[in-house]
Computed example of a mutant assay.
Amino acid sequence: MTSLLTQEIRLSKRHEEIVSQRLMLLQRMENKSEDQNKGKASSTQAAKAALQRNVRLLKDIEAAEKSLQTRIHPVLPSEVAALETLYWASVEEYIPKWEQFLLGRALYPASSKNGNEAEDTIQKRAQR
Rank of each mutant, 00 (worst) to 15 (best):
Q100R: 12
A47Q: 09
K40M: 09
I72G: 00
F101D: 03
D120Q: 11
D120P: 00
L51C: 06
E92K: 04
L57W: 06
V80A: 13
A81P: 01
F101R: 02
L23R: 15
S3N: 10
A89H: 03
E16C: 04
D120R: 00
L23M: 10
A49R: 14
A63G: 05
Y108C: 06
S111P: 01
S33R: 12
D120I: 00
V19A: 15
A110V: 06
R53L: 13
E93F: 01
K13C: 06
K124D: 09
L58H: 08
P96G: 01
L57M: 08
R53G: 08
V19H: 06
Y108F: 15
I122G: 00
S12T: 14
K59V: 11
N54E: 15
K13S: 07
V80W: 05
A118S: 05
E79T: 05
L102V: 02
Q52G: 03
S90P: 00
K32M: 00
R128T: 05
D120T: 00
A47P: 01
E119I: 02
A82R: 05
Q27L: 13
Q69F: 10
E117M: 03
S78D: 06
E62W: 07
W88D: 02
I95G: 01
L23P: 00
L103G: 02
L11D: 13
P74F: 07
Q36C: 05
L26G: 09
A110T: 08
S111N: 13
Q45I: 08
N116M: 03
E99Y: 02
K97W: 03
E65P: 01
A110G: 03
R128Y: 02
S3R: 08
Q45K: 15
R10M: 08
D60T: 06
